[in-house]
């Protein structure tokens, strides 16, 4: 199947209709396996059962970033290749990315309460994610403020690319800002020293979350294609009505 085939929205809809049920089933299976592993995983000797929030927190953080990367590619597709599905993909990814980023922030706060004694600290990592969340919301606001999807799509694509360029700079600035202020030492998840009994369910959860994202995204893209068809039909209806 060539890439060009997907450019045809009708063919895209047909493929989605065929793939989506299988993908949904796969996602459910992946979650069943991953959640089972997560429940079986031992408590952390320092954090207790709280560590299990990480099974949701880490995949959500990963998807928050992954989603912006995907939107960046879509934005290039919109601006450079004028691929008809590119801005559909970008538009439908934005609310998903915002939702996963929100889940990341929320679980972070719930984890932080027993760990730090407060829901929020202006830690470098958290703050970067918060800024990314605000940028997602800005993108959603941009999509919402223009009715014509083609016009909104190009504007959003430019904003997405600018955001993609800016996110590393923001991350660097926030890190610098944070070290400047030397925050109170906080409990951090040590990078590579995670025990395999936790690491394996964590990876499984990440895969399950990614599958969930792909399934939701394909479904949302299908809805968006259909929504745009309805819009075109309604425009046509106005044009062909009596005495237009």
């Amino acid at each position: 199947m060539a890439w060009i085939d997907l450019a045809n929205p009708t063919r895209f809809l047909r493929i989605v209709d065929r793939v989506l049920p299988w993908l949904t089933a796969l996602t459910v299976l992946a979650f069943a396996f991953a959640l089972n592993g997560a429940f079986e995983a031992p408590d952390d000797y320092q954090q207790g059962a709280t560590v299990k929030i990480m099974f949701i927190h880490v995949p959500a953080a990963w998807l928050g970033m992954f989603c912006w990367g995907m939107m960046t590619i879509s934005a290039l597709g919109t601006l450079v290749f004028r691929h008809p599905l590119a801005d559909v993909a970008a538009k439908t990814a934005a609310p998903l990315g915002a939702a996963f980023t929100f889940v990341c922030l929320l679980t972070g706060a719930l984890w932080g309460r027993p760990m730090w004694g407060t829901y929020w600290v202006w830690d470098a990592r958290l703050t970067s994610v918060l800024v990314m969340f605000v940028m997602y919301l800005g993108l959603l606001a941009l999509w919402r403020s223009v009715e014509d999807p083609a016009r909104a799509g190009r504007a959003a694509a430019i904003l997405t690319l600018v955001g993609a360029l800016n996110l590393p700079i923001i991350k660097f600035s926030v890190d610098w800002w944070n070290t400047l202020h030397q925050p109170a030492s906080v409990v951090r998840l040590g990078g590579p020293t995670i025990h395999p009994a936790i690491l394996i369910p964590l990876l499984a959860m990440t895969i399950a979350f990614t599958l969930l994202f792909v399934a939701l995204h394909l479904g949302a893209m299908r809805n968006e294609v259909l929504r745009r068809r309805v819009r075109t039909l309604r425009l046509l209806q106005a044009q062909t009505a009596r005495g237009a």
């Binding site: 600290v121 830690d123 703050t127």
Partner: peptide, 22 residues
């Protein structure tokens, strides 16, 4: 919702100017 978004942005920016001292 534009107002809320602006509100969120302003509050997010504040600590960058003031510092993260809780």
């Amino acid at each position: 919702m534009m107002g809320v978004l602006f509100f969120l942005t302003v509050v997010t920016l504040m600590p960058f100017a003031i510092g993260p001292d809780l």
